[in-house]
């Protein structure tokens, strides 16, 4: 057998153990970035081979927690891709306003910056009280951080810039209080948000949504899992519901392409046909 195949076998073995023991399934993650994250973890923790790591993970729950955090990259920001929020405000909000009540699902919300951005946008449109926002991720540590709504002050300058470009109608500073090195988002923004642990690779639908945002999460999945998750989204959207992806993710060439209308290809906003 070639070395390459053996190497793959060892990695699969590691992923099997992680799945069987801890219930997290990484088999269908995108190969290249998965490999990079696993080998990065091995370097940091001084493992020479996949099997050495697998062997330790068999019994060491503490190490698994650290491993899991490395596998779930939570890089995010408030009003990431400001033009997306602008397009959402202009193209989607007027349509949503025709509903008495809407449900929004942020799948893979990481530490919550995206969720608070949406809450601010809905608030500025006078619409927050008519919305329920579900914010889910499979990384519990990130979720706990999201629940606090407390963020490092060093990023705020960037967030303000984003907010302004996103067409914010007030000032971002209206929405947080500052202390020392941190800012805390105001509590009223949280009133309509429910945070929950949800694994897109294994868990089921979340009920009927008007809007699903899943941004910069699908890039971590292979084509197969992408299609599986996209079908979950399609089936979780109400008639004419909206799906929003990350700025470099597209429905083109996926198995659900024909089930959606393109609202804004540049900013990846799609609408379920029926």
């Amino acid at each position: 057998m070639e070395d390459e195949k053996k190497d793959n076998l060892a990695l699969q073995c590691l992923l099997d153990i992680v799945e069987k023991i801890y219930g997290y399934d990484f088999h269908e993650y995108a190969n290249a970035s998965l490999r990079r994250r696993v080998t990065g973890f091995m370097l940091d923790h001084k493992f020479d081979t996949y099997l050495q790591l697998a062997d330790r993970l068999l019994y060491d729950e503490g190490l698994f927690e650290v491993f899991l955090r490395q596998m779930s990259i939570t890089v995010t920001e408030m009003f990431r891709d400001p033009e997306f929020y602008k397009s959402f405000r202009e193209n989607i909000i007027p349509k949503l306003k025709t509903y008495p009540y809407i449900k929004v699902w942020h799948a893979g919300c990481a530490t919550g910056e995206e969720v608070f951005s949406m809450a601010i946008l809905l608030h500025e449109e006078g619409f927050l009280d008519r919305a329920t926002i579900y914010a889910t991720d499979f990384n519990q540590v990130a979720l706990e951080c999201a629940k606090t709504g407390i963020y490092d002050a060093s990023n705020v300058k960037q967030y303000i810039e984003n907010y302004n470009k996103a067409g914010g109608t007030s000032g971002l500073s209206e929405y947080y209080t500052s202390s020392y090195n941190a800012v805390k988002l105001r509590d009223f923004l949280k009133r309509r948000i429910t945070f929950a642990n949800h694994n897109l690779a294994v868990d089921r639908s979340f009920g009927e949504m008007n809007v699903i945002l899943c941004r910069n999460v699908l890039i971590y999945f292979n084509k197969n899992l992408q299609n599986q998750v996209l079908k979950l989204f399609r089936d979780s959207l109400c008639h004419k519901g909206y799906l929003c992806l990350g700025s470099k993710e597209t429905l083109r060439f996926t198995e659900v392409e024909n089930d959606f209308e393109v609202v804004d290809e540049k900013y990846r906003i799609y609408q379920r046909k029926s």
């Binding site: 995108a30 190969n31 290249a32 970035s33 990079r36 994250r37 990259i73 890089v75 910069n216 890039i219 971590y220 292979n222 084509k223 990350g246 470099k248």
Partner: peptide, 14 residues
Amino acid sequence: LVEDKTSLSLSADP
């Protein structure tokens, strides 16, 4: 990243 010989992938890792 090169995913395999047929496709490329992106990541927002650090």
